[in-house]
């Protein structure tokens, strides 16, 4: 049987071809319909609602594969909303309402690099000419810096930052707090683990991670903490304590008087430009 030889007229042949397509489209469409009816998956309404309220950055900072993975985890009762550092507090409250749980008060955080060394201030152990990533530099005798907790400045953190918030200037990385979403990608990428989260409204931060004694730091770095403890002694609110030869600031007690900034002989407690940052966020 030849479907196309019923007639010699071209337009009827075209009609037959069109009919063949229409017929097969009907059959296939019906098949898909049946299959999708039989194998229907009930998607939890909660998940789609939570997903709408999440920031949608898909940064992976929560440890899940993207926002949809996190939404599934939240809906199943596991996981904590505060694992997400990107979503705004209002949206988090919305999610808490959907889940029917209380939301803990929490503030927006940003990442800071706790080192002020760079190319000029911190002495080098040797000249490093290898593969220019921090990870491979750190695997060679712990990096080319005399200080064990110095920023190597090769920019592994810059590479992983989803928001391009990190700049490397003079072999020292710096986080732009206006762009930082506190996802934590840089924190896990840094082989020296000198990137930390602080509250976005923190007036000061300590730009050194060295836990060595004062004399050792003095010999290798011009801007390292020598653990003199002047900041802890001079703080009028008792917000600073010395832990492991480093000042630790309790931001709940800090009022932003900046006494520590003026007292520090090494200038490693750095004043942050908070007013501008917060203004921009609310504007």
């Amino acid at each position: 049987m030849n479907l196309l030889e019923f007639t010699t007229q071209t337009w009827i042949t075209v009609g037959i071809v069109a009919a063949i397509f229409a017929g097969s489209a009907l059959v296939i469409g019906a098949l898909i319909l049946v299959v999708s009816k039989v194998f229907k998956v009930d998607v939890d309404e909660k998940i789609t609602k939570i997903l709408e309220n999440l920031a949608g950055a898909n940064c992976g900072g929560c440890g899940c594969s993207g926002c949809s993975g996190f939404a599934t985890k939240l809906a199943s009762g596991a996981g904590d909303i505060s694992d997400c550092h990107v979503t705004s507090p209002e949206k988090k409250a919305e999610i808490a309402k959907i889940l029917g749980i209380e939301l803990r008060d929490e503030e927006r955080t940003v990442a800071v690099v706790k080192c002020n060394g760079g190319a000029t201030n911190c002495a080098e152990k040797f000249e490093y000419n290898g593969n220019p990533t921090c990870a491979s530099c750190a695997s060679l005798l712990g990096g080319n810096k005399m200080c064990a907790t110095a920023c190597l400045g090769c920019g592994d953190c810059k590479e992983v930052c989803p928001e391009n918030a990190i700049e490397i200037t003079d072999k020292l990385s710096e986080v732009n707090p206006d762009l930082c979403i506190s996802c934590g990608a840089c924190m896990s990428a840094c082989p020296k683990q000198i990137i930390e989260r602080i509250p976005a409204s923190a007036p000061v931060y300590v730009a050194c991670s060295s836990k060595c004694k004062g004399k050792d730091v003095m010999s290798v770095c011009k801007v390292g903490c020598i653990a003199c403890g002047l900041c802890a002694k001079s703080c009028p609110h008792g917000a600073i304590t010395m832990v492991d030869n480093l000042p630790s600031i309790d931001y709940s007690k800090c009022t932003g008087c900046l006494t520590c900034v003026s007292k520090c002989p090494r200038k490693i407690i750095i004043k942050r430009d908070v007013a501008k940052t917060e203004e921009q966020k609310t504007a």
Partner: peptide
Amino acid sequence: LKFDFLEIIFFIFIIAALVQMLEK
């Protein structure tokens, strides 16, 4: 049925539908 010259369009039809069903 002698409409084998339509193979490419028909195969795309069939494969697309097949993948849809397989996914479901």
